[in-house]
Design a protein around this nucleic acid. Structure first.
Length: 824
RNA sequence: GCCCCCGUAGUCCAAUGGCAGAGACAGAGGACUUAAAAUCCUUCCAGUGUCGGUUCGAGUCCGACCGGGGGCACCA
């Protein structure tokens, strides 16, 4: 660092950063919830981080964006709560602990401390009084309390089911941990395993999760709503009963095409369903079926995911009776029918369903066309016809179209008690058990006599034991099961010896309600108080990555609805507005050490300063787009910030000077920038907002150097506006400018200057004159000119008179004050 | 296979259906300087992926296609 101050030197960002941090610590400009605060509230929330090492470039983008929003609303006079915490349970800590033979607590709390201090240096506008970590017993106590509440309501239950199993890690995997059929951690091929596990009954809320999205229309990204709809996957159809020869009970199938009932030529049951085993038992094909079932079970997800897999199956030599025409349909078992969707059995209509047709082709089964379309015969082409058409070969349905046929056959079936209209969902219940240590212990005691007994509320939290004497290595069972002192207990109900549930909860449980805890973060009587909730919730603005578009957001919405039903909340959607930021890439791909394109945030901050990195992130493009770090210029940001900062040294008028006497054109530029930047921020076009500030900086530079001069009050007004607008994205530079302008910190609460509408009106605008849409002339007019006056002025314009050459216009469109189009 | 989003200068990106360029990066030139850096100024660069339609007028709306990205995926 040179000691000789240079006249045009860039300001010293490192010095400025160190200077202001302790002052801000003292002033606490972002403290929310003072009892006497008269300002209207705004809850701005960033998705809380997982403490996996220090902050990286992705965090830098996310928190820069959340900060712009939070700081904007503060400047606009709102009482903003902008909290932060840590999503601190999870696998990476456990893996690190195994590697270092340590307790996951150490690694986790060390990383939280590192991230916390980085956030402070990054000047995040967080309210540090509300911090909590999900691995704190004071927090996960309430996970356990909620679990028990769900259990009471039948929304937490256990069942046997085929779950994702990684043979490498010896553990169950969540769906999201299975990437293209492989374990995301060890790349082993994932298989299915039948296990007894805890589930949350999210399917009870499928319709509400779908229908309540109406409230979010236009406020959440359309893409996210689409993904959630897709994930829930509601379909409308009918359940139809088929008698089975030699079986007392009929079998119910689900179909979305009851209109094609007459085209059913066989039935298929899921190979891994109880029904398939029952139908095969004792019959001639029992051995063949069992062999087939074995091969199906052994198939990995990779195999199941292959799209052009040949169809396989076993003819069970049993028959179903088509209720509409008495036809005898052979029953097959196959893995192309899913046991856990619908009823696990289908009627196969090969003419009008491609999968059924593929199966019919492989097994040489008949194809019966019942909907006449203008497409070619599926029995010949082996391309199923799925479009609308006229029903044929279908008894009472003949001659109808698809929609009418569906209505008619459904009514007929219902009248005969053979079926009824039904809905199905792609959404499955949420598997919440994990065979892992570093999570919330499931607060249930298993008693031989009393069954599943919840841990009494006064014994919560049920804390995790120390990891010191526990082998955390995955071996197919929770490490807690081996902690005998912990697992062995007595039944809270009868007092007999009993065992604790040794599984822990999915960490998504932690994050499904954390946003409700911030307003009550120190409350040890309840998870949150209704008064706090009514004050602050719902979240006005949620900011986070699109990676959470389905799971986290769906689970949070589910919890909110459950808590609403429990009377603990007065709303049913937790996040009023959602902003998804894109990813930070390098040279077109995600950053990773192995790819060799990792950009270290700490290096960037060291080289360019906090403000320049924040500015670069926000200016790079629309927030939801990915940022390719190769395309942005942090040194360009430094240059701009220095340019803005230099202006604060040029101002010679005193603070408080009357702006109204200042240079009019610069004043108009200032007020237009304030107006446009505010509009841009509110519509999440932060890059545009910054462009407006850049324009004002350029205009002010010109005014100082070759215009009204540095002493003009308009220059002070402009530079103060620049500082306040910059405070959203470059807080250090802005604070330094504010001080040089003669003001006291903190600029964060200085307030957005009021825009004078009179200064937004231009004196004169240039109107364009077109002939047949082509520009032929321009005239300067008053902004308040009428359409008629503008039209007259245009027709009188010398160039236009010449161009028209006496021809009479067919039509003249005038759009005062901008445009006239003369149509010939 | 089904669904969604996006294609604008060399690059990143702006543009309530009304002058395609706001802003920036990179490039070129100039001023200042012994020189360089820094600073200041000036400047080059596309007719909006393709074809068709609606309109007085289309980057913007509609349709098809091409290219890129994403989600779901044997869900009956």
């Amino acid at each position: 660092m040179t000691t000789q101050p240079q006249e045009h030197a860039a300001y010293d960002f490192a010095y400025v950063q160190e200077k202001w941090l302790p002052i801000w610590d003292k002033l606490e400009p972002f403290k929310s919830g003072r009892a006497d605060d008269p300002r209207p509230k705004k809850y701005v929330l960033d998705m809380f981080p997982y403490p996996s090492g220090d902050l990286h470039m992705g965090h830098a983008e996310a928190y820069a964006l959340g900060d712009v929003i939070a700081r904007y609303w503060i400047q606009k006079g709102f009482n903003v709560m902008h909290p932060i915490g840590w999503d601190a349970f999870g696998l990476p800590a456990e893996n690190a602990a195994i590697k270092r033979n340590a307790d996951p607590r150490e690694w986790t709390y060390e990383n939280i401390a590192v991230q916390k201090s980085s956030m402070r240096r990054y000047a995040c506008s967080f309210d540090w009084d509300r911090v909590f970590n999900t691995c704190d017993p004071e927090y996960y106590k309430w996970n356990q309390w909620l679990f028990i509440e769900l259990h009471k309501r039948g929304l937490a239950y256990r069942k046997d089911s085929a779950v994702n199993w990684c043979p490498g890690c010896q553990t169950v995997l969540a769906n999201e941990q299975v990437v293209a059929g492989l374990c995301e951690r060890c790349d082993s091929a994932v298989t299915k395993k039948k296990l007894n596990q805890w589930y949350f009954k999210i399917t009870d809320y499928a319709d509400r999760l779908l229908d309540d999205m109406e409230q979010l229309e236009g406020k959440w990204p359309e893409k996210v709503l689409q993904m959630q709809r897709n994930w829930i996957g509601r379909s409308q159809g009918a359940n139809v009963q088929f008698e089975i020869e030699g079986r007392d009970e009929p079998v119910t199938i689900y179909t979305t095409r009851p209109d094609t009932l007459y085209g059913a030529t066989f039935m298929v049951v899921a190979a891994d369903s109880a029904l398939a085993a029952e139908l095969a038992a004792g019959g001639p094909v029992e051995k063949e079926f069992n062999d087939y079932l074995e091969s199906v079970k052994a198939a990995s997800d990779i195999d199941r995911l292959a799209t052009d897999r040949p169809k396989t199956g076993v003819d069970l030599k049993r028959f179903a009776i088509n209720p509409v025409n008495g036809a005898k349909l052979p029953i097959w078992a196959s893995d192309y029918v899913l046991a856990d969707y619908g009823t696990g059995a289908i009627m196969a209509v090969p003419a009008h369903d491609q999968r059924d047709l593929d199966f019919a082709k492989a097994m040489k089964l008949p194809v019966q066309v019942v909907v006449q379309t203008d497409e070619e015969d599926p029995a010949v082409t082996f391309v199923a016809t799925t479009g609308d058409g006229v029903l044929v070969n279908s008894g009472s349905l003949n001659g109808l179209n698809k929609a009418d046929a569906i209505a008619k056959i459904t009514a007929e079936l219902e009248a005969k008690g053979l079926g009824k209209s039904a809905r199905n969902y792609r959404l499955r219940d949420w598997l919440v058990s994990r065979q892992r240590f570093w999570g919330t212990p499931i607060p249930i005691v298993h008693c031989d006599k009393c069954g599943e007994v919840p841990v009494p509320a006064d014994q919560l939290p049920l804390t995790l034991p120390s990891a010191k004497d526990i082998d955390l290595k995955p071996k197919g069972q929770s490490p807690l099961a081996a902690a005998t002192d912990w697992v062995n207990t007595t039944c809270p109900s009868c007092g007999a010896p009993a065992l604790r549930d040794s599984d822990t909860m999915d960490t998504f449980v932690d994050s499904s309600w954390y946003f409700l805890r911030y307003p009550s973060s120190t409350n040890d009587k309840e998870p949150f108080s209704r008064a706090d909730i009514d004050t602050w919730l719902p979240v006005d603005q949620y900011v986070g990555g699109v990676t959470h578009a389905i799971l986290h957001l769906l689970y949070s919405r589910f919890f909110t609805k459950v808590l609403n039903d429990m009377g603990m909340l007065g709303f049913n959607e937790p996040f009023t507005r959602l902003l998804n930021q894109g990813m930070v890439l390098m040279d077109g791909s995600a950053m990773s050490k192995s790819r060799g394109n990792l950009v270290r945030l700490s290096d960037e901050l060291e080289n360019h300063g906090v403000d320049a990195i924040r500015l670069s992130m926000v200016f790079a493009g629309p927030p939801e787009d990915d940022v390719d770090w190769a395309d942005v210029s942090p040194s360009g940001s430094v240059k701009f910030l220095s340019r803005a900062w230099r202006l604060s040294g040029d101002v010679t008028s005193a603070p408080g000077v009357d702006f109204s006497t200042g240079d009019l054109s610069l004043r108009k530029a200032t007020h237009k920038a304030l107006h446009d930047a505010a509009f841009a921020v509110e519509s999440f076009r932060f890059n545009v907002a910054i462009a407006r500030v850049m324009e004002l900086v350029n205009a002010t530079r010109k005014a100082v150097d070759s215009g009204c001069g540095a002493a003009d009050p308009a220059v002070r007004e402009a530079v103060e506006a620049i500082a306040i607008m910059l405070s959203l994205v470059a807080p250090f530079t802005a604070e330094e400018m504010w001080e040089r302008l003669g003001h006291k910190p903190a600029i964060a609460t200085a307030g957005w200057p009021e825009v004078d509408p009179a200064l937004l009106v231009a004196d004169e605008v240039e109107a364009v004159i077109q002939i047949n849409g082509k520009i032929k002339g321009r005239i300067n007019v008053s902004p308040s000119i009428s359409d008629a006056d503008l039209e007259a002025a245009a027709l009188a314009h010398a160039d236009i008179v010449k161009e028209l050459n006496g021809a009479a216009p067919k039509k003249v469109i005038a759009r005062a004050p901008k445009l006239v189009n003369i149509v010939l």
